Simulated scan of single mutants.
Amino acid sequence: MDTSKHNLSTLFEQLGLPSDKASIEDFVARHSPLPGEVAIQDAPFWSEGQSHFLEEGLEEDSDWAEFIDELDALLRH
């Protein structure tokens, strides 16, 4: 069982992306705004594995879902 604390930084680590604050801000700036009709897991900038991880996290309402939702909100602004 995964008992580690999740946050936006650890979500980026899980996705295999740079996870420092500046890198997260840069990622959001480069990929925003995500159109409302595009589900976060279907965004064209994800690899197949990243997309699957996001989709599974949301479908299973996993511990990651809160932070996937947070990233989704950031990408919509």
Rank of each mutant, 00 (worst) to 15 (best):
P44D: 07
A39Q: 15
D20L: 09
H77A: 07
I40K: 01
P35M: 14
D72I: 00
D69H: 10
V38A: 05
D2C: 14
I40N: 01
D20T: 07
A65P: 00
E60Q: 14
S9G: 14
D72A: 08
L74W: 06
E56Y: 01
G49L: 13
L71H: 02
L54V: 10
A73L: 12
G36P: 01
L54T: 01
P18F: 03
H31Y: 01
G36L: 05
R76D: 09
E55S: 14
D2T: 12
L8N: 08
H52K: 11
G49F: 04
E48F: 12
L8Y: 07
L11V: 02
W46L: 05
H31K: 00
W46K: 02
D26N: 11
W46G: 02
M1A: 10
I40P: 02
E13C: 15
E37C: 02
E55M: 14
H52M: 12
P33E: 05
L8A: 08
K21Y: 15
H31C: 08
P44K: 05
A43K: 00
S32R: 06
S23I: 12
I24Y: 03
K5T: 13
K21S: 11
E56M: 11
T3W: 14
K21M: 13
I68Y: 03
E37V: 08
A22M: 12
D63S: 15
R76F: 05
A22G: 09
Q41C: 15
S32D: 06
R30A: 13
E60S: 10
E60H: 10
D20H: 15
R30K: 15
T3V: 13
E56V: 07
S32Q: 04
L74V: 08
E55F: 11
H52L: 12
S51W: 00
R76V: 09
T10S: 15
P33N: 03
S9E: 08
K5R: 12
D69M: 08
L71Q: 04
H52Y: 12
L17R: 07
L71K: 02
I68T: 02
E70W: 08
G57P: 08
Q41G: 02
S9R: 04
A73Y: 10
S47I: 00
T3D: 13
